[in-house]
């Protein structure tokens, strides 16, 4: 089909790829700039990274980000796995409603979601005095990471032949045994992948974290945003580049897990 397309299409494709990556690459390259300007290269240096890592605020925000992401990931992945396993025998209508409720964060604008959560926790604090501190943020993150964790797990479930569950029952496995010995091992790569996606989503989040976080609960994106108030130096490049590296690492992890599973389990054609 290629030779029937306008030749310009290839150029546009290349240009859009360039467009998508150029800003990130520029950011990355200039994070190694020894000068403090964003348009003049003055030789390579790691000193902005050193500054960033020495920055107490940055370190504190990094710790918060990791703690929240970890907590949200564990919670979201656990809940998502339960939801996928619990829903797979449910009727189509039930599944539809359930998925719509869980997928709400994907449809509603993130700022509305953030504002709603803020109102909720404020009301909770006002009415009952309950405030979980960083836990508030973890719960909020878990709620909107839930659909992201669910996607790879559902995809993995679709790859499981339904006859296998019937055979397991035929071979004296109770419902719990089927989940433990058949479903979980077969869903494992999807669960791992879902966990990685949930982590990235929580780690990268700005809107919810900015609106919800109280003092001492600053996460990395919120911290970087605060830096924009002051005169900018490539230190912010370094901090951003570190964030990018973490996200990229996790997405590669997610992909590797799915790829490895396809390799070991292999196609099973009778």
């Amino acid at each position: 089909m290629q030779r029937h397309l306008p030749r310009a299409f290839g150029l546009v494709a290349g240009a859009s790829l360039l467009f998508l990556y150029a800003p990130i690459l520029v950011l990355g390259v200039f994070s190694f700039n020894s000068g403090r300007l964003f348009h003049r290269w003055e030789g390579g240096s790691l000193h902005w990274y050193a500054k960033a890592l020495a920055n107490e605020g940055f370190r504190g925000a990094a710790v918060n980000s990791l703690a929240v992401a970890l907590g949200a990931t564990l919670l979201a992945t656990f809940l998502a796995t339960g939801a996928v396993i619990g829903l797979h025998r449910a009727g189509a209508r039930q599944q539809g409603i359930a998925l719509a409720l869980i997928g709400l964060p994907l449809v509603v604008p993130e700022v509305v979601m953030a504002v709603a959560t803020l109102i909720f926790f404020s009301l909770l604090r006002g009415a009952t005095g309950l405030d979980f501190g960083l836990g508030n943020l973890i719960l909020a993150h878990a709620a909107f990471c839930l659909p992201f964790a669910m996607m790879p797990i559902r995809a993995a479930l679709r790859g499981v032949e339904p006859a296998i569950l019937t055979v397991a029952a035929d071979l004296y496995a109770s419902e719990g045994a089927i989940v433990r010995h058949i479903l979980l091992p077969l869903l494992a790569p999807g669960i791992g992948s879902g966990a990685a996606l949930a982590f990235i989503t929580s780690f990268d989040d700005f809107a919810m974290s900015q609106l919800l976080a109280g003092p001492g609960q600053t996460t990395l994106p919120v911290f970087i945003w605060a830096q924009l108030r002051r005169p900018l130096t490539p230190e912010v490049n370094a901090m951003s580049a570190i964030m990018l590296a973490v996200s990229a690492a996790f997405i590669c992890l997610a992909l590797a897990m799915v790829a490895r599973a396809r390799f070991t389990n292999g196609p099973c054609d009778p």
Binding site: F78, I85, G86, I102, L104, A143, L146, V179
Partner: peptide, 17 residues
């Protein structure tokens, strides 16, 4: 027969959602 009551597993997710 098979997984039927496993639906309970889905409730925590609904709760949070």
């Amino acid at each position: 027969s098979g997984i039927g009551t496993g639906r309970l597993l889905a409730w925590p997710a609904f709760l949070i959602a």
